[in-house]
Amino acid sequence: MSDLKAEIIKSVKNPFFLFPLAFLIILSVLNACSNISDYYFFKNEVITDEVMDYNPGTSIMTVYNMWLGTRQNNRFADIFFVFALLFPVVVYSWSYRWTLIKDKKQSRYGIKKNFNKLIAIFISSGAVSTIPIIINFAVVSLFIPLRKPDSAYDIYFGVFSSNIMGECYYSCPLLYTLIYISVCFILCGAIGCMTHSLSVIIDNWILSGIIPIAFLLIFRFNCSAKSLFTSDISPISLMSSAPVAFENLKCLIIEFAIAIVIVCLSLWRIKTKKEAI
């Protein structure tokens, strides 16, 4: 247990965790500011308290369609979701380089220590992407009401009755948001573990960082059948908003399964190496 704690502290107290985290937090706060300013623009332009002679559409403005997880076609959100995936890779592959410089023997672990390291990487990689998302939600909720979405205005929310978990979005939106954040955490954590495990298999920190990104880009291109010329170049574009992510749950599960296979392969490789020694 103390080994695990030490690994977690090591993975978190690391410039390659802290700098990406700070960068993503800045992006998420900028996104929040942009969405809040849109909300106040709408409120000041459209809503007047004196004469109620038209529907001000107050029902369409809620945290649940104004935060980062619903992507407001905002440039900060676009940049955020490119880096939200890259940084879990960075957390491992660059910090791996960092620890290699500090300790030449870091690449040779036993299974138990490697398992602890995997858990630490899973937590840190998940956290680096989801902490900024949670901060974004918290900041937006300080200015925009937590109003329950009303399906009478569903085109403003982008979640329709045919969408997976659409029912949950309209009946319990906070739960829907929490599930989205959890899926994001698990996926980014799995990508971090995949990078680490690849480095064990191929023993090269540069390739272990590049291969997952290339794999995700190709996989996403096949899944979404998007044009190569789209401006949306995020390898986790399917994760870029809650409705999109839930519609592509199958792809996310396949990615998670592939990550687990690679992790198992790396553990098997460590075991066979140890037996050979």
């Binding site: 038209y54 529907n55 001000p56 107050t58 029902s59 200015f143 009401p145 109003r147």
Partner: peptide, 29 residues
Amino acid sequence: VNSKKDYPITLSFDRDEEVYIENDFFNSC
């Protein structure tokens, strides 16, 4: 933030009840 009451109030009615629309509207008065 959440205590401001500037959003519509929902009134539910049963079937067979005659409901008067009064000054309510969809988009404008």
